[in-house]
Computed example of a mutant assay.
Amino acid sequence: QMRQLAMIAETYDKGYGHFTTRQNIQFNWPVLADIPAILSDLADVEMHAIQTSGNTIRNVTADHFAGAAADEIADPRPIAELLRQWSTDHPEFQFLPRKFKIAVTGSPNDRAVTKSHDIGLRMLEQDGKPGFEVIVGGGLGRTPMIGKVIRDFLPLEDLLPYCEAIVSTYNVLGRRDNKYKARIKITVHENGLETFRDLVEDRFAELRPQFGGADQALLAEIEEAFAAPAFRNAETGAHDAAYAADPVYRSWADTNLAPHRNEGYAIVSISLKAHGATPGDASAAQMRAMADLAERFGHDELRISHEQNVILPHVHKSDLPAIHAVLKENGLATANIGLISDIIACRG
């Protein structure tokens, strides 16, 4: 997929792409007549641009360390995929008052920034039962607001009908007279959380009987697709030696590596924030270099973070010095993850 994005950047754009806070990529300079060909090329590698704009439910985002993080309670990726399938082309939600964004996290360290979303879902357990803390009405932009808890605990099996109740209530109550007042954060603020919650709960009571368990059967199938890769056991001496001897490598390791649930592995964040460059931009050559690294060292997996960086979620520590060397050759070894220069920017 990353190689296909590189091809699209070179063929139809100006040789680069811009990775976004929605964990997507933007091509900002294609000719309108080329759009059908671009969409066809994306479809060839199981990618699309459905609901990436417009007043719809946008792509669902999750913790970019999901399934790998040492601090994770539960993997949010199957939940995000279930929500994606439910929301894609949903006939009731194709002309909402304004765009609508959902995020899911399965970690107490909220890397999905759930409180800045229209719906934020925090996975947790109560008396051994899986469920969610549901947050509503967060957002950034010209009127930033922190989301409010609408349900302290929602059982897993109630997730889709409850989310549908929230969006359905917003679709009726949200303003359409002023697009700057049309997001759900304004709807909750103007009507009050208690009023909005009461309306959601009433709608949920109507919707819940319509969900007979097919969504839970689908979730079980989705979970199988997110099985962990086959981790290997090997010595980590190469990483330990490089860390002790090379201060440049040590600086990169201190900032750009995160703890993995497997002690022999690390999560690698590839910074797209080289000093003096546009945050989030990557050239076609850089995309191919990252694809090569994923294929050689990362179980064929790359992810995009909402901080507009690229993640190798499963890397054995013995491979880290080789990865760092390739990143240096391609201008991708900036050691600044989480620092002030790791800034986000919207090119749109």
Rank of each mutant, 00 (worst) to 15 (best):
L199Q: 15
K99Q: 04
N55Y: 08
T11S: 15
V200P: 08
D63L: 01
Q26A: 13
L199E: 15
Y162W: 08
F204H: 11
G331A: 07
E46W: 05
E301Y: 04
V167Y: 00
Y12R: 04
F226V: 12
A49M: 06
I102G: 01
S53D: 11
L339R: 12
G348V: 05
N336W: 10
P279C: 08
L320I: 14
A234Y: 02
E46T: 03
P259H: 01
R176K: 15
A217D: 15
L154D: 03
K14S: 11
I150D: 02
T114H: 02
T255L: 14
R288Y: 02
D292W: 10
Y180L: 13
G131Y: 04
K148I: 03
A242Y: 09
N256Q: 12
M290W: 06
I222C: 10
P130A: 10
P30D: 02
D177P: 06
E92F: 06
I222H: 09
T278V: 14
T105A: 04
A285W: 04
A282M: 10
H239E: 12
Q4G: 03
S40F: 05
R58Y: 07
N28V: 14
I38S: 09
A238N: 13
I73T: 11
L332K: 02
A165V: 08
D63I: 00
N55Q: 06
H299W: 01
T114G: 00
T334L: 01
N233M: 00
Y16K: 12
R175Q: 08
N233Y: 05
M290R: 09
A220L: 11
N262Y: 08
R197L: 02
A227M: 02
Y265D: 07
I38C: 04
P247V: 12
A322P: 00
Q23P: 13
R303S: 10
F65E: 07
N262S: 04
A33W: 03
G213M: 09
L218E: 14
T334M: 08
N256H: 06
Y16W: 11
I343L: 11
S251T: 13
L193W: 05
E125Q: 14
T195Y: 09
R151T: 03
N233L: 09
P229E: 05
D158L: 05
V104D: 02
D118Q: 08
L124Y: 00
L39Y: 01
T11M: 10
D118A: 13
V149T: 15
Y16G: 03
D319N: 12
S116N: 00
F100P: 11
K148M: 11
D127H: 01
R111W: 00
E46P: 00
G139M: 08
A227V: 11
I304P: 01
W86T: 12
R261D: 00
G15C: 11
K179N: 12
S318I: 03
P229T: 12
I73C: 03
A285S: 13
R296T: 15
L207E: 07
A217S: 11
A322Y: 01
I146R: 13
G213E: 08
I166M: 05
E235V: 05
G137W: 01
E125N: 07
A238M: 08
Q216L: 15
A241E: 15
S107R: 05
E235T: 13
G15E: 10
L39D: 09
